[in-house]
C-alpha cells in the first residue's frame, strides 16, 4: 500500500487533486481511498488531503501517519506545518518552490528523495495559475503511472466543470509538472 499526504491552503485544490489521483489509479485497476482532513473551512488555511493506493481492497479507515509521498503545494507551509512529519525515510518529498532540492533538504532535514520544482511558474506558463495540477503531474511521475491514462482521467473529470480551453491548459500544466518531476526523479 502506498500512502500520500498533500499539503495545501484552502482554495488551492489539494482535495481536488487527491481525488483525481485516486480516480487515475482506479483506472489502473488499483484500490484507492482519498480523503481530506476537515477543520473549519476557510480560504488560505492549511489543508491536508490523503490518498491510499493498493492492489488489494483497502479496509483500514484510520488517518495516514507515515506517508510514502508528501506533496507540498504551498511552500510557506514548510514554515508553519511540518510536512515531513512521519514521512518514511525512504519516501519522496515533492515541493512547489523556486528553490533547489538542496535548499529544501537543508530547510527540512529530510534525507530521502526530494523533488523541488516551481509548480506555480509551470501553472502560470500553462495559463491556469493553479499549482495543484502540475503537482499532480509530479506525483503521477513518482508513482510511475502511464501519463496518458492520467491525462484521460484528468480531462474527463475537469470537463464536467470547466470549459474545453481551460481543460486544455490544465492538461498542459499537468504534462509540464509530470516532465519536470520525471526528469529530476529519474536523475536522482
Amino acid at each position: 500500500m502506498i500512502e500520500i499526504r498533500w499539503h495545501g491552503r484552502g482554495g488551492q485544490g489539494a482535495k481536488t487533486v487527491s481525488q483525481i489521483l485516486a480516480q487515475i489509479l482506479m483506472r489502473e485497476g488499483k484500490h484507492v481511498q482519498a480523503f481530506p482532513e476537515y477543520g473549519p473551512e476557510r480560504s488560505g488555511a492549511p489543508v491536508k488531503a490523503y490518498d491510499r493506493i493498493s492492489d488489494e481492497e483497502i479496509r483500514i479507515h484510520s488517518g495516514v501517519y507515515n506517508p510514502d509521498i508528501v506533496a507540498v503545494i504551498d511552500e510557506t507551509l514548510l514554515e508553519s506545518e511540518n510536512p515531513t512529519d512521519g514521512l518514511k525515510p525512504d519516501g519522496v518529498l515533492i515541493v512547489n518552490t523556486p528553490r533547489s532540492a538542496d535548499e529544501i533538504r537543508r530547510k527540512t532535514g529530510f534525507q530521502g528523495k526530494i523533488i523541488a520544482f516551481n509548480a506555480t511558474k509551470v501553472a502560470q506558463e500553462a495559463g491556469t495559475g493553479f499549482p495543484n495540477v502540475p503537482m499532480l503531474g509530479a506525483v503521477v511521475a513518482v508513482l510511475g503511472v502511464d501519463p496518458q491514462v492520467a491525462e484521460e482521467e484528468l480531462k474527463e473529470t475537469l470537463s464536467h466543470r470547466l470549459p474545453p480551453e481551460v481543460v486544455e491548459k490544465n492538461l498542459k500544466a499537468f504534462r509540464a509538472g509530470y516532465e519536470a518531476a520525471k526528469e529530476v526523479y529519474v536523475g536522482s
Binding site: 487527491s18 484507492v32 476537515y38 479507515h61
Partner: peptide
C-alpha cells in the same frame, strides 16, 4: 454510515 470516514472519503 460513519460521517467523514465514509461519507467524505473517495472509495471504489
Amino acid at each position: 454510515l460513519d460521517g467523514f470516514t465514509l461519507t467524505h472519503t473517495l472509495q471504489v
